[in-house]
Design a protein around this nucleic acid. Structure first.
Lengths: 249, 249
DNA sequence: GTGTATTGCGTATGGTATACGCTTAAGAGC
DNA sequence: GCTCTTAAGCGTATACCATACGCAATACAC
């Protein structure tokens, strides 16, 4: 069952299992210190400001010292993306799956919203970090009494995770674009589209523009759109659960 | 109705409306040339290889020449992300919305799959490029006979777009990670998790691991998972349409 | 032909990740 | 306590990157 295998480098890093040896000069930093400093920089100045030099400066060390703890900047980014996920909300036990997943998704949106830069970090593989797995576990647990088999549960959670990530990425980057350039993306957006969109080539879009959908102050409202999309997805999950349990029961 | 406003710089760029003047030295390049070259580089060597110098070399020009056509690299990325979207599939007119959107989503996945780097380009605002709007229009059209009002159609399409993008990003980056490191993410993944995941802290996840869900060759199958998630989402849309039309009709 | 606008491009600046090797410090064994 | 071994700290160097600036080359307007 538990055949011992050599754990991949990323796993040992994220779980703090890098072997610590006795001999030699004492380390003045820890991986946790470095991660914390990098997260601070990203929170304050954005992910673009996170350079090895900047993080080292934050810690009062030299740039190259960091490479004794972390193989590359990519490893640091991996650490950051796990560290940004504080623990998932502790859901009461008796909840039905739908309220459970709704709370879970809202919680995830909230946590990630506190560290908006997470959505810019490229995914480098399946989840292995402790916090990532913690969230994963809680979502699976919410599906506990649905009668789905384990594989389907994973599929549902993956889908939801994908959706929340996409939603967040869109809303964060849109509102960033809006903040940088309010005139262009506010009222003007609809008008600019109207000038450029030809009714013959874009019939359906023209109708939408004519109906004034893009005339609002902000073309995209995170909260509203997020809840809307989420409930669409969960309706889909409900239909799926019903189909599965009907077939088996 | 059509109050003339000054179009934002991005719009004039993407629609080829930058004013062309007569006097002075003749330009030896066009924005389209530059975009094409950049796309070639990205297709062949990945988005990371796209530097102003590399693109200029591809065209046999000097680096700085590009800046006469494009204000910054960000503008170039914007052009690339519109250019990567070839035209949407031409859907027959009589289709019901669900087959229409399914074909649309599959088509989008296929097109974006041919230029996987698109998912790495940060979104800088609402869609304004001609190809982006073209796709948008076709999705709206597929919802034409559902009885939804224009705003709801936009919400549904945005949700679907978000989902497809997220799906693609996940599947592309996962399979990249898998290609780079097959042992770690193949069979080993489940075993590595098993060694590190404690059943008390991660009860639901442990059950999934024990069930062998992560034991397959590839932990995540694009095709299967994509269709699965898509049908979940479309089930949700169906439920939404039913609710709306029931209330109004 | 002359003036002028515009492109092409060389150079310079200040940033980036990170490879390498030397210096320094700290525990291990004697 | 001395020496050896090992690892950390870090200065330097390399090879990129985007892009600001200024000047030379060029082509149309008059």
């Amino acid at each position: 069952m538990t055949d011992e295998i050599e754990l991949p480098g990323e796993v040992t890093l994220l779980w703090g299992l890098r072997e610590t040896v006795r001999r030699g000069r004492k380390p003045s930093l820890t991986v946790a210190d470095i991660t914390r400093a990098a997260v601070e920089v990203a929170d304050a100045e954005g992910l673009a400001a996170v350079s090895m030099a900047r993080v080292a400066a934050q810690l009062g060390n030299s740039t190259m010292a960091l490479y004794r703890y972390v193989k590359s900047k990519d490893e640091l980014l991996l650490l950051m993306s796990d560290a940004a996920l504080d623990g998932p909300p502790d859901l009461p036990d008796g909840l039905d799956w739908r309220t459970g997943l709704t709370l879970w998704a809202r919680g995830l949106l909230k946590v990630l919203g506190r560290h908006p830069w997470t959505v810019q970090i490229p995914i480098s593989g399946p989840p292995v970090g402790p916090n990532n797995l913690w969230w994963f576990d809680r979502a699976l647990r919410a599906l506990g009494d649905t009668g789905l088999d384990e594989e389907d549960k994973v599929g549902v959670v993956m889908g939801l995770l994908t959706f929340v990530h996409g939603e967040l990425r869109l809303s964060i980057e849109l509102s960033k674009g809006y903040a940088e350039n309010p005139e262009a993306f506010g009222r003007q957006y609809g008008k600019a589209l109207a000038q450029v969109v030809d009714a013959r080539r874009f019939p359906a879009l023209s109708k939408v523009i004519a109906a004034g959908v893009f005339e609002g102050e902000v073309p995209y409202d995170d909260e509203v759109e997020g809840e809307f999309g989420l409930s669409l997805f969960l309706d889909g999950v409900a239909a799926f659960i019903e189909r599965r349990t009907a077939r088996q029961g």
